[in-house]
Simulated scan of single mutants.
Amino acid sequence: MSMPPDTRSTPTRSDRPLRFSHVGIVGKYHAPGSRDAVDEIARFLHDEGCDVSLEQETSLNTSLTQYPALSVPEMGQHCDLALVVGGDGTMLGIGRQLARFGVPLVGINQGRLGFITDIPFEDFRAKLRPILRGSFEDDPRSLMAASVWRDGLCVFEATALNDVVVNRGGAASMIELRVEVDGHFVANQRADGLIIASPTGSTAYALSAGGPLLHPAIGGWLMVPIAPHTLSNRPVVLPGHSEIAVEIVSGKEASANFDMQSFTSLLHGDRIVVRRSEHALRLLHPVGWSYFDTLRKKLHWNEGV
């Protein structure tokens, strides 16, 4: 005896329960079209059943007052997921702050390069819907904890996702740096500066200075000289557990910057110490995401093939 056909509908992906029910949005609010983009994404999230909040500055500058406004620490405490609408600079700024809370981030690209804000705005609906329900590629990124020491006292601290850069000022002369790794003397280097970069930062300033690309799964750091006096002074890849110390020996108006977003002036004898942060940034990508797809697209590999 044959059984009657099963007329029950097969559940679709959108029928799955939400993995992330409270989503915070951070926007590049000063960019043209940002308000409309944030509003469109927020409406989509609301229709998907999510509670939606806006980061405080994003809320203030877009006037989208129908959504609760949260400070960054409040987002870290209450949101399950953060959406960053902008470019990699926006992601760097908010990522460093949210990493300590363990909140995962998804980047929707309204910038130019988009190495870590990788979802094109026009595709956000199709890409976000499965992510909200737990289908994604998890991509942890290590952070650097940096400090500046002067006469035995810590005078500046910062966290970096891309890089820590020590460089000369506007004077047309090099600076001299004493470099140590794990307490072992490496060399006194004369150059325009030195970049200490994470794998994430290997596609940023370090790449422009001749450094190699590091896959984000590699637990290491790059040490890349900027225009060194000695041409055999080449980029070095170091283990991720290494502590790097850079002392200012000579040179005018030396400074250090961290992800190109925070800055401090340096004096002779200052030591910049860089080690792995206890926190890591957690990026989420659509299923099927590949680092090599990103490199091929953003660096224009295979063009003309």
Rank of each mutant, 00 (worst) to 15 (best):
F258V: 03
T230G: 09
H241A: 11
I244L: 15
R271S: 15
P212R: 03
R275E: 14
I244E: 14
A217Y: 01
P216E: 01
S255H: 13
S255A: 14
M223P: 09
V236Y: 05
G269F: 05
I248W: 02
Q261M: 01
V273E: 14
P235I: 03
P216Q: 02
A217S: 14
F263D: 12
H241T: 10
M260L: 11
V249K: 07
V224D: 07
V224R: 01
G240L: 03
F258Q: 02
T230I: 10
P228D: 07
D259Q: 00
L213E: 06
A280I: 02
G219H: 09
V237R: 10
L267S: 15
G211E: 00
A256V: 13
P216F: 00
R271E: 15
P212Y: 02
L213D: 08
G220M: 12
D270H: 07
Q261P: 04
M260H: 14
A280C: 12
L283K: 04
E247R: 12
I272N: 02
L281C: 04
D270W: 03
I248Q: 05
L231C: 13
A254G: 14
A245Y: 04
H215S: 08
L281W: 00
V273T: 15
W221H: 12
F258H: 04
S265G: 13
K252G: 12
D270M: 04
